[in-house]
Design a protein around this nucleic acid. Structure first.
Lengths: 119, 119
DNA sequence: TAAACACATGAACAAATGTTCATATGAAAG
DNA sequence: CTTTCATATGAACATTTGTTCATGTGTTTA
């Protein structure tokens, strides 16, 4: 009887024990999905631009839209998503909503990405 | 005459000079798109899983598929994309193609992401 | 050289995503 | 309290994206 999964190649390059070890060391599925969802936030150029702006300067919605040349509605939709991911927060100030980065990981993540891209 | 863009809020929270400074400090559009495309790679759970596996152990395509319980075809399509982004490389070894991480930034990017998620 | 195996790839399809447009909400000023 | 301004949101739409299925390519082994 062959105990290996039918998908596995005949002469497994890594032995089963190795596969088992790697499998055991993987984060659970929920964490993996959360992680992918987090990076999804950085995977759209509009959101990327918003975060870049907020890395330098907190700013109201309207100014972000103007600075980036993107419609207020589009910005607002994206801000909503970014807030849900707890990457940015906001406070009211008079008539305006001021947005700012909510997490310092944003900076380090973007910096690591830049290092790769600029190589 | 009002020199401000019509989109800009009446009483700009940030003065125009600030907006101009931030705009000047932004990377050019090409870089921003590249950056977003890079993070897009981390924004899918299948690719995330592949990279997690390869962080621990280089491995042939077939074993990755078996370990993750994902079809060989799906894995192959994703590997193609990851190679295009220069995140993983591969070499032939007999009948198999062995895949491995091509860039150490992968580890640091994922680690930063994990820190955020596990908070 | 023929068969078996590991992997790649194209087409088709469903699902997720981002923008626009129109409109709603809610604070502030008159 | 009415109007105005800044922002939010829902619906519709076009794109992008990821998977499956069928099949192609290139290596190895018999």
């Amino acid at each position: 009887m062959d105990e290996r999964n039918e998908l596995m190649c005949d002469e497994s390059c890594s032995h089963n024990e190795v596969v088992e070890k790697v499998r055991a060391d993987m984060p659970d599925d929920d964490t993996l999905y959360e992680l992918a969802d987090l990076f999804k936030m950085f995977g759209d150029s509009t959101r990327m631009k918003i975060m870049f702006v907020l890395m330098e300067q907190e700013m109201c919605v309207c100014d972000i839209a103007e600075l980036l040349g993107i419609s207020q509605s589009a910005i607002s939709h994206q801000l909503r998503i970014l807030k849900q991911s707890k990457l940015i927060s906001s406070r009211r100030e008079g008539k305006n909503i001021i947005c700012f980065l909510a997490d310092d990981h944003v900076r380090s993540i973007i910096d690591q990405g830049l290092s790769h891209v600029l190589e």
